[in-house]
Simulated scan of single mutants.
Amino acid sequence: MSPDAALGRCTFLGPSGTFTEAALRAVPGADAAELVPASSVPMALAAVRDGEADHAMVPIENSVEGGVSATLDDIASGEDLQILREELVRISFVLAGRPGVALADVRRVSTHTHAWAQVRGWMREHLPEAEYTPSGSTAAAAHALAEAARGAEPFDAAVCAPLVAEQTGLPVLARGIEDVSGAVTRFVLVGRPGPLPAMTGSDKTTLTVPLPDDHPGALREILDQFATRGINLSRIESRPTGSGLGKYFFSIDLEGHLAEERVGAAMAALHRIFPGVRFLGSYPRAEHRAVTVSRRTSDEAYRAGREWVRALRAR
Rank of each mutant, 00 (worst) to 15 (best):
M1E: 06
T11S: 15
F12T: 06
S16R: 13
R25D: 05
G29K: 14
A30Q: 12
D31N: 12
A32N: 08
E34T: 15
L35D: 00
V36N: 01
V41F: 05
A44E: 09
L45T: 10
A47R: 11
R49A: 14
G51I: 13
M57W: 07
V58S: 06
N62W: 04
E65R: 10
E65H: 09
V68I: 15
V68Y: 06
T71P: 02
T71I: 05
D73F: 09
A76H: 04
L81Q: 04
L81F: 15
I83A: 01
L84H: 00
L84Q: 08
E86I: 08
L88Y: 09
S92Q: 14
L95K: 00
A104Q: 09
V109H: 01
S110F: 14
Q118H: 09
R124T: 08
E125F: 11
S137A: 07
T138A: 14
A139V: 02
A139M: 14
A140S: 14
A141M: 04
H143F: 14
A148F: 09
A152R: 13
E153Q: 15
V159H: 03
L163P: 00
L163V: 12
L163C: 06
V172P: 02
D179F: 05
S181H: 00
A183K: 03
T185K: 00
R186D: 02
F187G: 02
P195Y: 06
T200H: 07
T200R: 03
T200V: 11
S202L: 08
S202D: 11
D203M: 08
T205L: 13
T206E: 08
T208R: 02
V209S: 00
V209K: 00
V209T: 12
L211G: 01
D214W: 15
E221R: 13
I222D: 04
T228W: 04
T228L: 12
R229A: 05
N232M: 10
G242Q: 13
G244W: 11
F249D: 02
F249A: 03
S251F: 08
I252K: 01
G256T: 01
L258F: 06
E260D: 05
V263A: 12
M267Y: 15
A269W: 01
H271W: 03
I273K: 09
F274T: 11
G276R: 12
F279R: 00
L280H: 03
A286E: 02
R295M: 05
R296F: 08
S298D: 12
A301M: 12
Y302K: 10
R303F: 11
E307H: 06
E307W: 04
E307I: 04
W308S: 05
L312S: 01
R313T: 09
